[in-house]
Amino acid sequence: MILIKHSLNNQQIAEVQADDYIWKTVEDGTDVMGDVYYQGFDRMIIHEKNIHPNFFDLKTKMAGEILQKFSTYRVRLMIVGDFSKYNSQTLKDFISESNKGRLVNFVESVDQAKIKLAE
């Protein structure tokens, strides 16, 4: 796992990059958030390709449990990827509702993520 540090409008943003899944379990999500938060970031970008597919199957409750931790600690999160490949209407509704808020958003590019996190 590599942390790329971005600074935009005096906001410090951590972009997490890896070659494989870094969120395979709820504990992984919590650990990564804690690590990023401990390093002084309250804004984070993670790539969809680094999240196990179970996250996007809402029946597993993995997404809800991880994102609840982000909410509790008020760490803003942008998940970057192409979400059109997921056929679940429930997931599409979840993404749509998340994107109405500011805490957790699903976006198509790192540039979009940085702009939203710098607001």
Rank of each mutant, 00 (worst) to 15 (best):
M1F: 13
M1I: 01
I2A: 11
L3V: 14
I4E: 09
K5Q: 13
S7M: 09
S7N: 11
L8D: 09
N9K: 11
N10Q: 08
Q12C: 06
A14L: 05
E15C: 03
E15W: 03
V16T: 03
V16G: 02
V16N: 11
Q17I: 11
Q17F: 05
Q17H: 11
A18I: 03
A18E: 15
D20Q: 15
D20F: 05
W23N: 04
K24E: 03
K24R: 15
V26E: 13
V26N: 13
D28P: 13
D28W: 06
G29E: 04
G29I: 03
G29N: 02
T30N: 12
T30G: 10
D31G: 04
M33C: 07
M33Y: 12
G34E: 08
G34R: 05
Y37D: 10
Y38Q: 13
Y38K: 12
Q39H: 14
Q39W: 09
Q39V: 00
D42T: 15
R43C: 05
R43D: 07
M44T: 01
M44S: 04
I46E: 08
I46K: 06
I46W: 08
H47L: 06
K49T: 13
N50V: 11
N50E: 05
N50D: 13
N50C: 13
I51S: 07
P53L: 14
N54D: 12
N54P: 08
F56D: 07
F56Y: 08
D57F: 06
L58V: 00
L58T: 00
K59C: 03
K61Q: 14
K61I: 08
A63I: 01
A63N: 00
A63S: 09
G64D: 10
E65L: 12
E65D: 15
E65W: 14
L67S: 11
L67P: 03
L67T: 14
L67Q: 14
K69W: 07
K69T: 15
F70G: 15
F70P: 01
F70R: 04
T72N: 15
T72L: 06
Y73M: 04
Y73Q: 06
V75A: 05
V75W: 00
R76S: 10
M78I: 02
V80N: 01
V80L: 07
D82H: 10
D82N: 11
D82S: 03
D82E: 00
F83P: 15
S84Y: 01
Y86Q: 07
N87I: 00
S88H: 05
S88R: 09
S88K: 04
Q89I: 08
L91Q: 00
K92G: 05
D93C: 06
D93L: 10
F94H: 09
I95A: 04
N99S: 01
K100F: 11
K100T: 07
G101M: 10
R102Y: 10
R102F: 12
L103T: 08
F106D: 03
V107Q: 03
E108P: 01
E108M: 08
S109V: 01
S109W: 06
S109E: 00
V110M: 00
V110T: 14
Q112D: 04
Q112S: 03
Q112Y: 06
A113L: 08
I115T: 06
K116W: 10
K116A: 04
A118P: 01
A118I: 04
